[in-house]
Amino acid sequence: MLKRVLRVLGLVLALTATSGIGAAAAQPSSPPSAAPPAATDGFVPVTDLPPVEQLPAAPLVLGAYAFIWVAVLVYVALLWRRLAAVQKDLDALTHTPPR
């Protein structure tokens, strides 16, 4: 049961990962309009971005999100394998007739 749940989890995570990376890669030229408030100590949203600005940042953003997904997926995969191994041992033990 758990194994199946985990398998579905892995699949869906993988799918969302690819879609996430895809979305991050394809930064649109028309972000939604939002009036930038005049803040000095915070992040100020801006609508028009010079194209020069976008070029070097994209691989970094892409790398960051890719890393997050890979890290989480690797952890989930390891967890899954360890759970499966322990479950197998447990099953083997319960089916061993008492000597």
């Binding site: 979305a23 991050a24 972000p31 930038p36 992040f43 971005l49 940042a57 970094l60």
Partner: peptide, 24 residues
């Protein structure tokens, strides 16, 4: 986590840091 990429994608850019701020 399926919705998050779209929200992030649609969020406005930051004025000084631009695209890279989306890592935030």
């Amino acid at each position: 986590f399926s919705v998050a990429p779209f929200l992030i994608h649609n969020a406005p850019y930051e004025s000084t840091m631009g695209l890279v701020q989306k890592i935030f």
